[in-house]
Design a protein around this nucleic acid. Structure first.
Lengths: 224, 224, 224, 224
DNA sequence: CATGAATGAGCTTTCATTCAT
DNA sequence: GATGAATGAAAGCTCATTCAT
């Protein structure tokens, strides 16, 4: 169940040929790890090749340039979990607040905290240099994700759980927390010895709770 | 009306000296533009110089290295604002909620909506490759910024406006919205024609309101 | 018959591999020539590469920096000889005076009269600017060289050939002659048409003889 | 009695004008010190100017280039002490051995150990790049120096103190010790923590004594 | 197909030299 | 004359890309 889709191994082929077919996937996996770890520019083509167990030259046999490799890495790794979540949404029975909590938790476990989270950071970092990728990412990830969250919010309103709201912008508030976590995990976080106690899951829970319950004292509410 | 270094007030100086005083500001402005536009690593030192109307060598007359230039860009565009805000905080008379609203608005007007907002995206993107800059940014911007917000939240609690909360994590919720805006504006935003209706100021207001008042219906409160 | 790295003995290799094995030697030879001719600082890395028949980049494939190249030049031209001489010393049967004579002659034949002699001049010239190289030279060449000479002198004393002496300083007297020759050959010598009759080998022999037998008339000895 | 010839100070001139006339001398002095200390290439033109108390531009008012400055430094500092010694030689009454000892001692005190010694090292280091200077140095310093030493040796032979010898080469043996000292003092010496006990004057004395008395045991002399 | 030696454009930084003031 | 801001030619080093083997 690797993020990278491994090619099916026809068992009639020799080991060597199977190896050959796996090459692109191995290279993509190596590239993914390194790009996430060090960034696109700072990753040398040879490193990718070495980690994939091939030589520099071979890399360029499968990808015409480093840029091409980058695009392939991103695209091959954006088969999002969104479809699964969409289905879960359809059958969910609990409150919409629970749904959000469940969604955020799942997201962090399955995406945010994994290499896939690094891809988001990568895409954000390189978007300006690779507009094509930015567009792809928005179409494949951002849009569907927003749609799902907005549906949950809408459901909450319709069921009387949530008060009326600007669904789109509230959705962004939720998304912002997720993006924040990914950027932190892959940018400043690793560079700072501070905030060592910062715990993503606690943050997510706090964020959601604050959004749900608000900060103001119940008492003086009507007063303001 | 540049954010960077005010024009010289002395009028007795020769044309050349006036140029000299203006140089650092011109270079910082050029660097800011190019860094935000193309990224730090992808911007050549000579480009910065050229855009500032000087030669390569002159850049290094004012900044000892490209990295030094980057730091100066951060400092002149962000650090200074933080100091000003800290002072405003001291004299602020209104409610803490107003204070947050005022702070977010000021931030958007003076930083978020300007090129300076791109610096954050820049730093996040390059942090792993330039740990020293990451450290510098954390020391000069993140820490002071968090400190300021947390003080406001604390003030709200002490004055009975806000309920007890995990100050640090709530602070992050506010920060996440700002960071989200900056990433959006400088990463995916410019690359996608979609979300044209997305309005940062409305988003900020919505975000703050949601944090303050919560999403849940007042009625079922306490029930959940 | 180059001093540097013997030609490959393996004959099963392809043309390309044979080149690869020869490269370091070719580069070292080119570097030696240019360094001696123009000085270390005044020699551009690319010149060395060009003279060795390769491109700039290739040089750095074999030597991680220009300084590294310099060290390798020292090592391949001087350090190796010292080790050989140390071994010869162990098996030498003749008188210590003969040993000195043999040593000086060998030195002149194998180092002093060759380009390798220029290295010493080179190191002396650049020592202040490249302390690390100076240290390297002292560790690799000066120390072992002095040690060898002092051992010979010591042997002479112990065998009753030489009278008691300040071994270290007498060693320096021998070294000074060698250094003088190298400085002369590579500094003033080539620039002056004078002293055409100056013959290094005769000088060395005279120097050693004078050191051995002294200048004073045997008669008035003890009187002074 | 500075090594650098200070221009005569006409007292009718104003202080400023006197300053102006002194400029070249001050620049030469500053350049001398820095060239000796750091070498020609490693000394920046601006450093020289700063040490002389003027600006970069002014340096080029007096010397058309750094190279020109270098030549001027060397030439203005080679007014050797040889004339004085030649005169002392004429009137010397003691033994020729004493004369050599006295000469070497004086030389070290007045030249070898001073900045002038550094000039020699400088000349040796840069001779290949400045053949003109090398020639100048040989004519003005080397030749007269050799001539003086050879005359002393000749006198020793004629007076029956010394045995017959190859005067020229023995002269070189003496010179080699002096050159060795200067190179050591200005090259490897300052870079090596080793040989801390190395004392130039002791070395010179030992060197001369060894040359005079030889190393071999008096007893087995006729035997060899 | 796979390799890895070789390439060379490209980048940051230095510093002698110029010239407007 | 004096100044010092500005210049731009180098130089060391990296790394994506090529291609002979």
């Amino acid at each position: 169940m690797s993020i990278v889709s491994p090619p099916p191994a026809h068992d009639a082929h020799s080991k060597r040929e199977r190896r050959k077919e796996a090459r692109p996937g191995e290279l993509l996996q190596a590239a993914l790890e390194l790009f996430v770890e060090k960034g696109y520019a700072a990753t040398r083509a040879e490193e990718v090749a070495t980690r994939a167990g091939v030589s520099k030259g071979t890399l360029f046999l499968y990808f015409s340039s480093k840029e091409d490799l980058f695009k392939a890495v991103i695209q091959s790794n954006l088969s999002t979990h969104l479809m699964a979540w969409n289905q879960e949404f359809e059958g969910f029975e609990g409150s919409s607040a629970d749904m959000l909590a469940y969604g955020l938790t799942s997201w962090w476990t399955q995406i945010g905290s994994t290499l896939a989270g690094g891809i988001t950071k990568l895409v954000m970092s390189e978007a300006r240099n690779f507009p094509e990728i930015a567009g792809f990412y928005e179409r494949e990830v951002v849009k569907p994700g927003q749609h799902l969250i907005e549906r949950i919010l809408q459901r909450g309103i319709e069921q009387g759980e949530f008060r009326a709201m600007d669904v789109h912008h509230v959705c962004m508030s939720l998304v912002s927390a997720m993006m924040f976590l990914m950027m932190w995990k892959h940018s400043l976080g690793p560079c700072s010895a501070t905030n060592p106690s910062f715990d993503p899951e606690t943050f997510l829970r706090t964020h959601l709770n604050t959004l749900l319950y608000g900060l103001l004292q119940p008492a003086p509410r009507g007063t303001t």
